[in-house]
Amino acid sequence: MSVRDVRKSYGDLHALDGATFSIEMGECFALLGPNGAGKTTITEILEGYRRRDSGEAQVLGIDPARGDRVWRSQLGIVLQTDRDLGDLTVAEAVRHFAGYYPDPRDPDDVIDSVGLTSKRRSRNEKLSGGQRRRLDVALGLIGRPRVLFLDEPTTGFDPEARREFWTLIDGLKAEGTTILLTTHYLEEAQHLADRVAVISRGRVLACDTPDRLGGRERSSARVSWIEDGVRVETQTMSPTTVVLELAQRLGGDVPGLEVHRETLEDIYLSMLDDDRDEEAGESA
C-alpha cells in the first residue's frame, strides 16, 4: 500500500499537499495528526471513497480509484461515525455482512473476539458508544480482510476496553493483516504501530518506528532519585552509567529512582509546534 505525492484540494483548502508514504504487507501503520491534518482524507482516498487530484496511490497493487469487487472483498473498513443498522441486532448485522464476502470469518467468533457475545441479541441502537464501535470493528473484520482500515477505532472506549481492543489488533497482526490506523491516542500508536507517520497540513512531517520517531532514541534521558530526603535530577545521554554509579554510591537500591525519556507525545507535540512556527513564517 503506498501513496506518492498525493494532492487533494477542496476549493482553496489544500487537504493533502503532496503526502507520501508506503506500508509493507503485514505492517501496522499509524497516522497521527491534529484534526483537519488530512488523516481522514488520505484514508478515504486509499479506501476508494474519494478521488485524489494528483499523485499516485496503490492498495494491494490496485489504484483505489479503480478498485473492483474482488479488490473490495479484501479490504475491511471501519469508518468514524456510524449510526446505521440500529434496528438490527448485533448477530443479524454481522451475519448479514458475512454474506457479502467470498471467505468470511465465522460471525459468532468475530462477535466473541470484539467482546459482544453477551450483546448479540441486542438491537444495535441500544448499544453504548464503545459497544457500537466494537460492532463497527466486527463488521470490518468479518470479510477476513488482507488490509484493515481503522479510523479512530477506540474513540469513546474506557481504558479497559481499549486494552482489550489492542489485544484483538495484536491478534490480527499476528495473522499477517496489514493495518492502517488513524488515532488521537499516542499511547495507542506506541502500542500497536510498527511505524508511525505524523501528518500536519496535508504533508507527512515524519515517518518512523515509534521508538525512533524524531530521533527519540538519541535524545537525552532524565534520571531522578531521592537523596537526603530531596529529589535530585540530572539530564544525561548515558542513563545506564548514571544509574550504575548511583547504585554503587548509595549502596544498593536507589530510593525513588525514575528514568524518563521523551515520550512519543513529547516528540509529537514539539513536531507540531515547529510546524506551526513554520506556517506562521510562511504566511508572514
Binding site: 479506501e47 471513497y49 469487487r69 472483498s73 469508518l79 449510526r83 446505521d84 455482512f97 470479510g143
Partner: peptide
Amino acid sequence: LEREDGTLKRLQGTPMP
C-alpha cells in the same frame, strides 16, 4: 436518512454490487 447515518457509505465500502 441512510445517506446521513452511514448506511450507504458502509455498503459502498463492501464488495456488495
